[in-house]
């Protein structure tokens, strides 16, 4: 297909997608801007406090130097690792028949290389959540 699709493979192909993006973006911005103008305003100091049980709100996690569990960071790193793997697997999958056995062996080596740190993290308990 590449030779027939050259005429339609320019960036112009993406134009309708950008139009849809602009329409939904415009709708979202419109809604967010119109809401405070249309709705009522009844000022009350209590309403502006963070939603929480108890009389005194707990220290703010954002401004007060609260800490985020390191688990999320680990998950994020693992995600990046696997995301890169995915990004490399897609082109292989598209061209799998063209590259044949050689490509398969190369991809298998790559997958094994990614799996080793994964197994290591699993064994070290990086995937435990409690």
């Amino acid at each position: 297909m590449p030779d027939t699709a050259t005429a339609a493979s320019g960036l112009g192909t993406y134009l309708p997608l950008v139009l849809l993006l602009l329409l939904s973006f415009g709708f979202a911005v419109f809604s967010v801007t119109i809401a405070p103008l249309v709705g009522p305003k009844r000022y009350n100091r209590q309403k502006l406090q963070p939603y929480e049980c108890g009389i005194e709100p707990s220290p703010q996690p954002v401004a007060g130097g609260g800490r985020i569990p390191v688990k999320f960071y680990l998950t994020g790193m693992l995600f990046i690792l696997f995301d890169i793997e995915m990004v490399f697997l897609y082109p292989y999958a598209v061209a799998a028949d063209a590259v044949g056995m050689f490509g398969f062996i190369a991809v298998t080596i790559f997958i094994v290389a990614i799996t080793i740190p994964y197994v290591y993290e699993w064994a070290r308990g990086g995937l435990e959540w409690d």
């Binding site: 688990k71 994020g76 696997f82």
Partner: peptide, 22 residues
């Protein structure tokens, strides 16, 4: 939001979405 519950919800949501995206 500057509030504890939304922050926790957002962290969970992020971890969940990226995990299942893999």
């Amino acid at each position: 939001s500057g509030s504890p519950y939304p922050l926790l919800g957002a962290l969970r949501s992020a971890a969940q979405v990226i995990s299942y995206e893999i």
